[in-house]
Design a protein around this nucleic acid. Structure first.
Lengths: 206, 206
DNA sequence: TTACCTATATATAAAGT
DNA sequence: TACTTTATATATAGGTA
């Protein structure tokens, strides 16, 4: 339809291509509108031109048509992002429910449903956990005591040095800043990590 | 274009409408294909006919075009469902991480990061939980013992009756099936619910 | 439905302005 | 570059099979 017949293949001349695009886009949208009115159809057209610009037409709400499309196409041609998140979401939800259930067991709140042998096992775990916590508490307290003691020792040494200075003022230069900064010979604690209040726990192994 | 001109308004004759729909749908998709080839455009067309059936055309992957549309339209015309799920997803994830952290504390696995007073508190909770579980276990065991005892009593009664029958065979008809089914007078347990191994825990209150 | 026919309405390629 | 014109290609309404 035009002065000459054209082959359906990419128009290489840029200007020409843009002109044709504008004309045909208008035609396409007009046709879409007509079929939607004539046949009571719901139509959406989405077009990106070769430079990536978006043009769209929808006979009603684009949002609604796309939602409807997602339902009708059975999630088949839906975007990965959505599907992936949906599946991740379900997994998370399941995991969450299990965690909450376990949590309710482990706090002794929802144990009415458990059989005697399960109760036995749970009790054992709780006792072990309590012991671990108690042991750790002891360890920490011991470490802090040691730290404090070494601080005391350090201060005592410092005092001794100061006293020495007062007694023999001519030896001042022999002791430098070194002495003043030393707070004691206590070694760092075994595997003692202090982290901020929100540590990242990725592993679920317990 | 056709034998006669038609007004652009809904075609009331159903057959006619369906025929026109088929023809124009084919035309629309053809035009969409042509513009996509001629102008190197990316085109998607979605059509629902008046009975709700879906027809679609995409010059490349429908999935990709819709994703691209979502980005290009700035999420404006995106479906609520997605946004809502995204926010729910984030909440769940956060909740999940917290639960896992708590779980790791409560099993005594990840207590290195806790301060002495936190350890003290945790230990207290664990001891309380262990006691609750132990108490429940005792309760269940007592209940089961009672049940067994009443079963024994029932059987003893049955035996007595059978012995009685053997002694005085002429009184058989006085005792019916009733006696044989009675397993004892034990009342139902106080708030004792036995559920299958995977109970549904919907409430998160604890 | 589905496909074919054909007169006509429309769309549009290319040229003009 | 953008609008108008115009010759021609295409789409399709209304039939028929």
């Amino acid at each position: 339809m035009g002065r000459g017949k054209i082959e359906i293949k990419k128009i290489e001349n840029t200007t020409n291509r843009q002109v044709t695009f504008s004309k045909r886009r208008a035609g396409l949208f007009k046709k879409a509108k007509e079929i939607s009115i004539l046949c009571a159809a719901d139509v959406a057209v989405i077009v990106f031109n070769s430079t990536g610009r978006l043009f769209d037409f929808a006979s009603s709400s684009m949002k609604r048509i796309l939602e409807r499309y997602r339902n009708a196409s059975g999630g088949q041609a839906w975007n990965n992002e959505y599907e992936q998140m949906l599946s991740q979401f379900r997994n998370l939800k399941k995991e969450n429910e299990e965690l909450q259930k376990e949590m309710s067991y482990v706090t002794g709140e929802d144990v009415e449903t458990l059989a005697p042998n399960q109760l036995e096992y749970l009790e054992g775990n709780l006792v072990v956990a309590a012991k671990k916590v108690r042991d750790r508490k002891t360890e920490v307290l011991k470490y802090e005591r040691r730290k404090t003691e070494s601080k005391v020792t350090g201060l005592q040494q410092k005092c001794a040095i100061l006293r020495e200075w007062l007694t023999n003022p001519e030896n001042h230069e022999e002791y430098g800043i070194t002495v003043c900064n030393s707070e004691g010979p206590t070694p760092p604690p075994p595997a003692f990590r202090v982290q901020p209040s929100q540590p990242n726990l990725q592993s679920s192994g317990y």
